[in-house]
Nucleic acid binder design. Structure first.
Length: 207
DNA sequence: TGCCAGGCCCTCTTTAGGGCCTT
C-alpha cells in the first residue's frame, strides 16, 4: 500500500456537534506495513474532562490544562499528515473530530484526502470475529500486546497493526496484487454480500 | 459505569428499528 497515516483521537465525548473536544491525538505514518514515523500530543481545548473520560482514558483535567493549545497541536499534526491518505478505526468518529478541530483552528486548507476505516473493512474480511472493537481485532489478528488502550498513540499503533493484517489477508485470501487506500474505500462502501462477490463486481481483473 | 451523534449493517426491512463502534 502507498504510505498512509493512521490517526486516533481521545476526546471529551462522542459528538463534536454537542461541544465535545479533542484531548489527545496521535498519527502514525505507515509505509510497507511498518510504522516509520509518529506524532503524538495531548491538547488543551479549554474544556473540562468529564470524570467518565478520565476513568476511561487516564487523561486528567490537569494533564489537559498543562498541554499545548489545541490550535498549535492541530497545526503540527496537519503538517505531519500532509497529503497522505488517512485511516482510522471507526473513521466516521475521527473524521468528524478532525474536521471540527481543524475548523476551530481556521486552517485555510480544507481536508483534501479521504479516510479509510479499519472497522468497516474488518467487518467484511473477518465477519466471524467475536466483535469488531479495536482491541478484540488486535487479539483476533494475533498482534502483540500494545500500550494502554484508550491512549491515542497506543490505539493508533494497534490500528496500524490491524490495517497491516487486513492487507495481508486480502492479498493472501483473494490474491489482490496491490491493496491500495482506494481499494479499502471501495470495499467499505460496497453493498453487502460475500467478499468474493464484491471483488468480482469491483475488479475486472484486479483480483 | 453511560448518555450524547453519525454511519454502517442486519432483519421479524425498504412507509423501520435497533445494534455496533468510536470517547
Amino acid at each position: 500500500m502507498e504510505p498512509v497515516v493512521v490517526i486516533d483521537f481521545e476526546t471529551t465525548g462522542l459528538a463534536p456537534e454537542r461541544g465535545a473536544r479533542a484531548t489527545e491525538i496521535a498519527a502514525v505514518l505507515v509505509r510497507d506495513g511498518e510504522v516509520v514515523d509518529r506524532y503524538q500530543s495531548l491538547m488543551n481545548a479549554g474544556v473540562p474532562v468529564p470524570p467518565f473520560i478520565e476513568a476511561l482514558t487516564g487523561i486528567t483535567d490537569a494533564m489537559v490544562r498543562a498541554a499545548p493549545p489545541a490550535a498549535r497541536v492541530m497545526r503540527e499534526v496537519a503538517a505531519f499528515v500532509g497529503d497522505h491518505p488517512l485511516v482510522a478505526h471507526n473513521a466516521s468518529f475521527d473524521r468528524r473530530f478532525w474536521d471540527a478541530e481543524l475548523a476551530h483552528v481556521r486552517l485555510r486548507r480544507s481536508r483534501a484526502q479521504e479516510f479509510a476505516c479499519t472497522m468497516l473493512v474488518a467487518r467484511r474480511v473477518w465477519p466471524d470475529a467475536p466483535d469488531h472493537k479495536l482491541g478484540t481485532l488486535a487479539r483476533f489478528a494475533g498482534l502483540p500486546p500494545a500500550g494502554r488502550a484508550h491512549r491515542a498513540l497506543a490505539d493508533a499503533e494497534v490500528a496500524a497493526g490491524v490495517l497491516a493484517r487486513l492487507e495481508q489477508e486480502l492479498r493472501r485470501r483473494y490474491r489482490v496484487p496491490k491493496v491500495t487506500h482506494a481499494l479499502l474505500r471501495e470495499l467499505q462502501a460496497a453493498s453487502g454480500g460475500p467478499l468474493e462477490t464484491i471483488f468480482q463486481r469491483l475488479s475486472g481483473g484486479r483480483g
